[in-house]
């Protein structure tokens, strides 16, 4: 044999694992992806945010998005709860909290998950978690199925619903192209209050923890995004519970790919076992049929044999009877003839 057993098993294993896991998600195991080393992130300190919407304006400009209906200087817009759309990658919302005086603000945009749900859900790999930390999207392969929008726990990706033939998914790119040119993301550069800080994720986590420690009366003791959905490249600090500024606290820490890896792992098992099982069932039902047919044939044969035997017995009996009768008749006839002969003899003699 030209291939060794070990090699062969290796291939089989790789084929199975490959089809189950693909190339990013790790099904099972105890490996935990904590982001590319040295990747970038943004820390959003909501305590410092004043809701000026300058980040929104900058985002609109650097991404060359269509001009909004109302200008960015119009703060009336904040009266309504908004989300990201195909024309706005980021929005700032205002929240009221019972425990705090004055309004609170929070900026919303793609959180650039360490293990993105959108990337895991995309069946053409249009999304990519790059080593800079940004999750990018490639519209040249996108089919427009919108499963990424379903999958995103933060409800971020938006869709060009009014594009008849060339709709794209629209979402924050973390200014990936600017980062690679050593420029700050548009929103971070524009923020006048330093509510946004750009840097390496591990550094930002340290900064965030230091702020919490130093101003423990001002901050909730939690860095949102450190572990939510397995961790994100946008991190948040808040002075009130995060649910009060519209952030879900029930998302858990399981990265999205782990939620589906079990189901995917079953696929090669079904492919491998079902044909064996089904062929077995087929063979059993076929054999049952064959046995039933054999038994039927045997029964028929048995029945005909029995009938035949009986008939033969009856025939031979009848034959014997007939023979007997015949013999008797012959005997009788002979006797009669003899008697007659004797009679005539006697007559002659007399």
């Amino acid at each position: 044999m030209s291939i060794s057993r070990r090699k062969f098993l290796g291939w089989i294993g790789a084929a199975g694992a490959g089809s189950a896991i693909g190339n990013t998600a790790l099904a099972g195991g105890n490996k935990h992806f904590t982001g590319y080393p040295g990747s970038y992130a943004v820390l959003h300190d909501t305590v410092l945010c004043v809701g000026c919407r300058l980040c929104e304006a900058a985002c609109n400009k650097v991404n060359e998005l269509p001009a909004p209906v109302k200008p960015f200087t119009d703060l009336e817009v904040l009266n309504k709860k908004r989300r990201t759309t195909a024309k706005t990658y980021t929005v700032v919302n205002r929240y009221e909290s019972a425990g705090k005086k004055g309004p609170l603000f929070r900026k919303i945009q793609c959180n650039h998950c360490l293990e993105p749900a959108c990337a895991s859900a995309c069946f053409v790999r249009a999304f990519k978690k790059t080593e800079t930390g940004a999750v990018t999207y490639d519209s040249t392969v996108c089919v427009g199925c919108r499963y990424c929008m379903v999958a995103c726990p933060f409800e971020i990706p938006a869709y060009e619903y009014d594009e008849p033939l060339t709709p794209r998914i629209m979402k924050c790119t973390m200014c990936h192209s600017r980062i690679t040119k050593n420029q700050l993301p548009g929103c971070v550069e524009a923020c006048p209050k330093e509510a946004l800080t750009f840097g390496k994720r591990e550094d930002l986590l340290k900064i965030a923890r230091a702020r919490i420690r130093k101003y423990s009366d001002k901050y909730v003791d939690h860095v949102y995004g450190e572990s939510e959905m397995g961790g994100t490249s946008w991190l948040y600090l808040s002075g009130v519970p995060f649910s009060e500024i519209g952030m879900r606290e029930d998302l858990g820490v399981t990265p999205a790919p782990d939620l589906t890896s079990g189901a995917l792992a079953v696929v090669p098992m079904v492919v491998g076992l079902w044909p064996v099982l089904l062929t077995g069932i087929y063979a059993i039902s076929k054999r049952k049929e064959k046995i039933a047919e054999q038994e039927l044939n045997e029964a028929v044969k048995h029945a005909t044999d029995e009938v035949k035997e009986k008939a033969e017995a009856k025939l031979s009996e009848a034959l014997a009877k007939a023979q007997k009768e015949k013999d008797a008749a012959v005997e009788k006839a002979v006797k009669k003839a003899l008697e007659e002969a004797a009679k005539s003899q006697a007559k002659e003699d007399s």
Partner: peptide, 18 residues
Amino acid sequence: GRPWRLPYPFIIQSGTTS
């Protein structure tokens, strides 16, 4: 969005984690 790309996952780029 772009129905003619429905074969893309099989001929252009496969997202097998999906």
